[in-house]
């Protein structure tokens, strides 16, 4: 746990009802841990007037009602939580969002690599002088951390991609990418929700898992910032059957609490 050297966060204004708590300006695991630890701690306080908390890579956006909670009081609460506990304290069923309910843990996500599921797999392999099998190994052996959910519903930005397959984004982003894509861009990896989204990242595979399903009352979103993700290759032949199970409501991904 890092405390002594860490600088306190910068508190920035976002209109009358937003406070930005900024821990850094880079993509960095330690910074992201601090963001999520503070988000969890603030969630646990259940402050009246806090409407919602949006953790990102390197900062926290706290939306509040200035008629109920003053900016000064909110700043005081935030600074009193500094330094945050770095143990990933879980936030159980808070008012500020349907948090996990079970704290942070590890998801095992099945992936059908290559072919129609991952049209860029061959290209990525060629680019790095690897076989497609090696790319699949490198991608599926790593342990990823969900840095942030954003851009699209349930879209998970992951850190932890093996350096050997760091790959610059495409120069011509696609306006539509297949739902449930597993992709990489630069130093990052991602899991797409079951929606077609624009993206300039390289498509390695697809998962049957529906990471976003607004009709799944108890868990519309599977992942939360701070979770760990591991990918498990599955034969392309099994993909369709797993998808059917997912459409029928099965979660498919396996969850191991921390």
């Amino acid at each position: 746990m890092k405390t002594a050297q860490a600088l306190p966060p910068r508190l920035l204004d976002a209109g009358e009802s937003g406070l930005v708590v900024e821990f850094g300006d880079t993509i960095d695991e330690q910074v992201n841990r601090e963001v999520i630890a503070l988000a969890d701690a603030l969630d646990a306080l259940q402050l009246d007037g806090v409407c919602e908390i949006v953790p990102t890579y390197r900062s926290l956006l706290v939306l509040f009602d200035p008629l109920v909670l003053s900016r000064e009081a909110l700043r005081g609460h935030v600074l009193a939580l500094w330094p945050p506990r770095a143990d990933g304290r879980p936030s159980h069923g808070t008012r500020h969002g349907p948090s996990h309910g079970t704290g942070h843990g590890t998801w095992r996500v099945p992936v059908a690599y290559g072919g129609e599921h991952g049209v860029d797999l061959d290209h990525v392999a060629r680019l790095h002088g690897l076989t497609t099998g090696e790319v699949i190994d490198l991608h599926s052996r790593a342990e990823y951390r969900v840095y942030m959910i954003g851009f699209a519903p349930g879209f998970a930005y992951l850190g932890g991609l093996d350096e050997a397959i760091h790959t610059s984004r495409r120069t011509d982003p696609r306006l539509k990418t297949p739902p449930r894509s597993i992709s990489i861009g630069g130093r990052q990896a991602a899991v797409s929700p079951p929606l077609e989204i624009p993206s300039g990242w390289h498509l390695l595979g697809q998962t049957p898992v529906r990471t976003y399903d607004p009709t799944r009352a108890e868990r519309p979103f599977l992942f939360a910032a701070g979770d760990t993700i591991r990918f498990t290759p599955v034969p392309q032949a099994e993909y369709a059957a797993l998808c059917r199970a997912a459409e029928a409501g099965e979660i498919i991904a396996e969850w191991e609490p921390a």
Binding site: C51, I53, V54, I149, G150, F151, P153
Partner: peptide, 9 residues
């Protein structure tokens, strides 16, 4: 819809 921006909504 509030409380879900952290999930990209």
């Amino acid at each position: 819809r509030f409380g879900y921006q952290r999930f990209g909504i």
